[in-house]
Nucleic acid binder design. Structure first.
Lengths: 116, 116
DNA sequence: TTGATATATTGATGATGGTCAATATTCCAG
DNA sequence: CTGGAATATTGACCATCATCAATATATCAA
């Protein structure tokens, strides 16, 4: 359920530019808003920040529960939202679940802003 | 009420690097989340898009009410949120209110992502 | 298999948010 | 000053969301 809208570089076969749509359509807008919704919570921003700061590139849920002041189910919930938004990647190894930034995902979001 | 968090380049007097904070603090996160909250609605994204696409660089509320399928009070409400977030600028001339993109505001948001 | 640990899911609850109808405000024209 | 037009504000309603407690699932150890 990776929802990061791809900037689809000329989806039709025209050679030279629909010139970045005159204005955002309703459906496009809905898709893009999903990504920003995922970022629109302080605790989720902190989760991203912590994962990003980790030298190993990944963190398990147990490492994420303490810094935030939230219960484990809540953290799990936020992580799911970030994964669904295409920002985090989840890998389960044994009993632990390791979360890491999807490479380029944050850059893609920056791209969304540029193509508003 | 301009809430775009400034990337305050070394707020203390240390000469060389808190090295972009180990992780996002609670207060910082709250501030940054406000901006993303403003972007986390399809209709607000479309408003930004329309204003941006306007060759004159500005649009009045009457031009924004039709494209979206919303009542005037609702559009006004969304515009206020975008202004409060520091993304749009409002200038009233006569009976009309003209909205324009705050220069560099979207780039600043992209910057927020880079400094998570 | 049994128990223990890490994580996910469910259900409920209080808070926040988007929308509209009605009303208020502000400004221009006459 | 009066009427009308553009925009803003208020109050209410319904939907979504963040959070937690309780429970379920999955994996490892003994």
């Amino acid at each position: 359920m990776n929802s990061l809208p791809v900037i689809d570089q000329a989806s039709d076969d025209a050679c030279c530019a629909p010139a970045s749509a005159p204005a955002l359509g309703a459906e496009e807008a809905k898709q893009k808003a999903l990504v920003f919704k995922a970022l629109a919570d302080p605790n989720r921003l902190r989760l991203l920040s912590i994962v990003k700061a980790e030298s190993s590139g990944e963190s398990c849920v147990c490492d994420l529960t303490d810094p935030l002041d939230l219960g484990q189910p809540t953290v799990s919930h936020h992580l799911k939202i970030l994964v669904d938004a295409g920002l985090l990647h989840r890998e389960k190894r044994g009993t632990w679940a390791y979360y890491s930034l999807v490479p380029g995902a944050l850059d893609d979001v920056a791209g969304l802003l540029a193509t508003l």
